[in-house]
Design a protein around this nucleic acid. Sequence first.
DNA 1: CTGAAAGCGCTTACAG
DNA 2: CTGAAAGCGCTTACAG
Lengths: 341, 341
Amino acid sequence: MKKDDTPTSGSTQRVTSHDVSREAGVSQSAVSRAFTPGAHISPETRRRVLDAARKLGYQPNAIARSLVTQRSGIVALIVGDLHNPFYPQALSQFAQALEARGKRALLLTHDARRDVQDTLDAASRYQIEAAIVFPTRLNNTPPNLGDVARGGVPVLLFNRHLPGQRLLSVACDNHAGGQLAAEVLLETGARRLAFIGGDPETSTHQDRLHGFMARLQQAGLAPVAAPSGAFQYDWGVQATLDLYAEGDGPDAIFGANDIVAIGVLDALRQLGRRVPQDVSVIGFDDIQESARLAYRLTTIRQPLGAMIEDALLALEDPQPSDEPRLHQGELIWRDTVRGAR
Amino acid sequence: MKKDDTPTSGSTQRVTSHDVSREAGVSQSAVSRAFTPGAHISPETRRRVLDAARKLGYQPNAIARSLVTQRSGIVALIVGDLHNPFYPQALSQFAQALEARGKRALLLTHDARRDVQDTLDAASRYQIEAAIVFPTRLNNTPPNLGDVARGGVPVLLFNRHLPGQRLLSVACDNHAGGQLAAEVLLETGARRLAFIGGDPETSTHQDRLHGFMARLQQAGLAPVAAPSGAFQYDWGVQATLDLYAEGDGPDAIFGANDIVAIGVLDALRQLGRRVPQDVSVIGFDDIQESARLAYRLTTIRQPLGAMIEDALLALEDPQPSDEPRLHQGELIWRDTVRGAR
DNA sequence: CTGAAAGCGCTTACAG
DNA sequence: CTGAAAGCGCTTACAG
């Protein structure tokens, strides 16, 4: 019965402001004004427009509006792979925070084989107002990233910074966090401390490591080991197994992030080492998994909400700087460090 | 030195096709053609345009293009909260698959207190070509959801269906999955089986439960318990604790999804019940966490990649139907069901 | 193959 | 407060 050339078949004409103006008996300008907050329009006209709009199911065309206002209201969120659950969480919170400001999030993926610049170019075609890049496994941030900022679109690196580039970046104070981890471990009696790193090319890895080492040095100590690999579970497991393959092994381990630390915990369990009696473990991030009864990981929480608010604030009046905007992590005591208060 | 009214200060004029045409000494139409695959343009002209474009850093304005072609290339991805790690994974894979097709993903969040319709309206302003809704904790999908489909924009529910509504939906065959779970448990000797559900309002919960019950009935059995709650870890823990508070408790548990099943596992560990010797546990989804050494959860994997491809295929020629497009889950044997092959 | 021109659906001075 | 008109940056018939 229903043939494909009936008007019902999806080809419904979009309703425009002209249709509404005709219905309401006003000019097209008037319907535009009715949908523009703060525009000069009488309550009566406004009501008539809104009624007509509702009747016709009219929604203003944001694309057309963007073209004339030169403001798309779109912010690009550029993500790598989402294996670290810390990022999806940040992602959805960003999207929400953006919506609260009347903006929209365009989600773009970036795979490590390609240049971020390509992704940014693709995004810039949509006249994005800003780009936020999540650096999951993103090592090869190209040296010309700053060009985009010069092109008028501010770029913000979330949770990573690129030394020597004038870019916006918001991050946790990873150096201080590394020190804090060392502090906690030292204070609870550890003497043979190890750091199990993530991707050594990243600032997160480096800063946490350096902070950790600095604090150890104050105590006249050096880490018994500090292997690096990737911010991944399997790596945490493997590195731990290797660490205890010979000799006593460390009596405390700082995992570069929670995913790694959880790998550490699972490896220790497999090895029959008790946590925290035989070895203390501390992580970084405070992802959901860390609170599971099977882990109860003591960790340093990144203040995600504050970091996101600050990122959006920074984007409003972009002042690229060599220095990232830093936020202090918060120690979350759970059960993997001995002598917890 | 650098004062704020210098031309460098962010106010860089966007470069348009007119600028490029001037630079290349051709018409504006020509530059448009140079960027339109398949357009009639001589290689020579094309090269000159592309050179000029590169020199000026030109990127075609996708917003303007959308306005005239009536195709935005934008697909809305509507997500609830992202607590279940199954969804972020789906999200990033969708974004990638969309990009492979030259489309872009607009990320919108939806909180349970508001009407999905509002979110869809907001999205429709961006002239989206389709909307994919992820039903995390989305119970109150309104009865008028189909209206959007009538408005010309196809809406697809991912991993959930709404009985009685003519909508697109792609889901795992949860009924068959529930049967499979029962089958596995029965075959490995379980006799006192329990189902720990998720949100009882959802089709995922209901279908898995019904499939499970149907298979038990074939064996002349009924579940010893089938409480429902939420697709959350804490609920899995609590429900399990309650289940063993008195009497023998079940010798096998089917968790409505992996997050719940992981809660079950942690609760059993706390209770001192051995898995799988004392009780078998099986989940649904196969999220990353399930493969951790601490869990090694036997589960039914949703064929995410195939489901995503199928969703995108369905959207190309939308044929709303009462029936969801179903995909079979795959049993992943790990260590939480006794007598694993 | 190429260019001039109309038009996509809005916003926003400009007059009234 | 209101309407007519120009214009945002493109694509795409239409002639040549």
